[in-house]
């Protein structure tokens, strides 16, 4: 059952449920596999042999395995390495505008407070007038 070119299904690990081909017999227990799985050494106990045997050379490269898999209509997803995006460089803010801004803000706040106080003073007077008038009528 275990021979070079035998199609198998992986049973264990993160590559389980994916199909692979035996490329080399390393040991009594271990074989080299490739295909939908990663190319790696694998225990025979972690493989379920299928009924198909591919004609393939011993230790064939990954490209050849993909070609053979295409004939059988088994898709092999190629691993795409992520491109590292360049990090935007931090631009230091110049120190002088901070002080200028603070001073300006304080001035503005003072003006606003003054305006608010004026408004507050005006409002109660009107209320008092309004309240006094009805008293006189009575």
């Amino acid at each position: 059952m275990i021979e070079v070119g035998r199609l198998c299904v992986k049973l264990a690990g993160r590559d389980s449920r994916s199909k692979c081909v035996i490329l080399d017999i390393i040991d009594n227990n271990y074989v080299l596999i490739d295909g939908q799985t990663r190319r790696k050494k694998c225990n025979i106990k972690h493989l379920e042999p299928l009924d198909k045997v591919i004609k393939i050379k011993k230790k064939a490269p990954h490209a050849n395995v993909v070609k053979e898999f295409k004939k059988l209509k088994i898709e092999v997803k190629e691993k795409t390495s992520k491109k590292q995006n360049e990090k935007p460089k931090k631009v230091r803010k110049s120190k002088t505008p901070k002080h200028v801004k603070k001073v300006e803000e304080k001035k503005e706040t003072k003006k606003e407070t003054e305006e608010k106080t004026e408004k507050k003073e005006e409002k109660p007077k009107e209320v008092k007038k309004a309240s006094k008038k009805p008293v006189k009528k009575k």
Binding site: V9, L11, A12, S16, R17, E48, L50
Partner: peptide, 13 residues
């Protein structure tokens, strides 16, 4: 792990 292994075996056979 045992159940998933049996599941895959049944599918393959």
């Amino acid at each position: 792990s045992k159940c998933s292994k049996d599941d895959i075996k049944q599918e393959a056979r």
